[in-house]
Design a protein around this nucleic acid. Structure first.
Length: 420
RNA sequence: GUGGGUGUGGCCUAAUGGUUAAGGCACCUGGUUGUGGCCCAGGAGAUUGUGGGUUCGAAUCCCAUCACUCACCCCA
């Protein structure tokens, strides 16, 4: 056992996995920019208070999953458990309300939750995050959902399953909560311990309880969609109409309530197989009250976060191929001190000409150097020895064909550039 | 935070409680002087996660601990 190990729930992303990461980030970036989203980067840590308020006391994230610490100046800070609170903070702090509205932002980065790790869940994970701030049009909800959809589709996901619900707004949510509580009052002794607690702290969460005994109760529970105010009902109906218009199928999920406090109206998740017991690769929704809650001007917002580790896990499950990362296709072998000097000059000239090249280190036999060239997977091995130097040439070996040709040193860079 | 499973060279795997912990992949060297891959030969690499205990004797049994893993809660 090595003396030092990764902290629990963290991972090393090895070179052989990097092609997935490059590809996914590139696709996400491309699609976001196509839709007019601009990149923003916010700090990895923020004031603890921001998340406590923004995400909400009483949520699991705030109650037991935050990586919090006190810095040397006595400030209470927390590694971000999600992006939205920080992005909204940046919107307010940088006075982005004076910009052309809405402001459409995307970002990537590590995110932290102190959870017990399992398949598809890590303490440090990576999110792709998208937000539209300053727009209440259901078309904004649609845009955000389309981006998620198109990203997964372009990454090779099949049978996309969108789960959709509305959680109402401060106008209608309390009324529904009252109805729900009343309904549950009649089943007090049939539900699980956790749900009894949930009824007090965050009543909507009883709806996604997984305990067996609670299932029949949930099945008979009133639907929030039947209790939305006119505004929320219209918003939801319009969003559905738009989704239908664009042929994006979704499932109305009355039990989808999401774990964070700030959601209003639209909530959605994207489910996928292959990520262990978790099902969501993406979760998001509308949060019209969040900016105000954080001390900013009233600003409607909608967005989502998507976990890249889970995306990549699904891609591997589906055997999605990703393009390989570029690497040199030339290897410079040399025999003798004079040849090594020439190799040094050449490797530099090649790279200046934008031709990737490996240099053989040390002083070794040709056999040894060619073996390395083979293992590095290059197309051409350039051999510089006494004979070549005397003739002012290099021997270029095509490693695939096994054929060699003599090329004048003066032309070598050009010769290789034309072929790689 | 709760529960189950698992820890043997870099990776994968073997070893009825009984010699010096075995093999494969990968790695290194060589198979004559300047030619890779295939093949052959050889080499290096492990105080069996750690710490205790039982035993004449422990990779193997027991306890603890750490880690990994799967699941619950919840989420990405």
């Amino acid at each position: 056992m090595p003396r030092y190990q990764r902290p629990i729930g963290t991972r090393d992303i090895m070179p052989e996995d990097q092609p997935y990461w490059y590809y996914v980030r590139d696709r996400a970036r491309h699609l976001a920019e196509l839709a007019g989203f601009e990149r923003i980067d916010v700090p990895i840590f923020e004031a603890t208070e921001l998340f406590a308020r923004g995400v909400g006391e009483g949520t699991d994230i705030v109650d037991k999953e935050m990586y919090s610490f006190t810095d040397r100046g006595g400030r209470q800070l927390t590694l971000r458990p999600e992006f939205t609170a920080g992005v909204v903070r940046a919107y307010i702090e940088n006075g982005m309300r004076v910009r052309l509205q809405p402001v459409k932002l995307y970002t990537f980065g590590p995110t932290f939750r102190y959870d017990r790790p399992q398949r598809g869940r890590y303490r440090q994970f990576t999110q792709f995050n998208v937000e539209i701030l300053g727009e209440q049009d259901p078309a904004a909800d649609l845009e955000v959902m389309l981006l998620a959809w198109d990203l997964y589709a372009s990454l090779g996901f099949r049978d996309l399953a969108f789960q959709l619900n509305s959680t109402g707004c401060p106008q209608c949510k309390p009324g529904y909560v009252a109805v729900l509580k009343e309904y549950y009052a009649g089943h007090e002794d049939e539900i699980c311990q956790d749900c009894r607690r949930r009824l007090e702290r965050s009543p909507l969460r009883v709806l996604d309880c997984k305990a067996k005994q609670c299932q029949p109760i949930i099945a008979g529970a009133p639907h929030i969609l039947d209790h939305l105010c006119t505004g929320c009902a219209e918003h939801f109906a319009t969003l559905r109409e738009y989704l239908d218009l664009l042929d994006r199928s979704y499932t109305i999920n009355h039990r989808l309530v999401r774990g964070l406090d700030y959601y209003t109206k639209t909530v959605f998740e994207v489910w996928a197989a292959g990520i262990g017991a978790q099902s969501a690769v993406c979760g998001g929704g509308r949060y019209d009250g969040l900016a105000e809650l954080l001390g900013g001007p009233p600003t409607p917002g909608v967005g989502f976060g998507s976990g890249l580790e889970r995306i990549i896990m699904v891609m591997k499950e589906l055997n999605v191929e990703v393009p390989p990362l570029p690497k040199p296709s030339v290897f410079l072998a040399h025999l003798g001190p004079e040849a090594k000097r020439e190799a040094l000059r050449l490797v530099n000239a090649l790279r200046q000409a934008d031709v990737g090249a490996y240099l053989a280190f040390g002083e070794r036999g040709l056999k040894n150097q060619l073996r390395e060239a083979g293992k590095r997977g290059v197309r051409y091995a350039v051999i510089l020895g006494e004979d070549e130097l005397a003739a002012g040439t290099a021997t270029v070996r095509d490693m695939e064909a096994g054929e060699q040709t003599s090329v004048e040193l003066a032309w070598l860079v050009e010769w290789l550039k034309a072929r790689v």
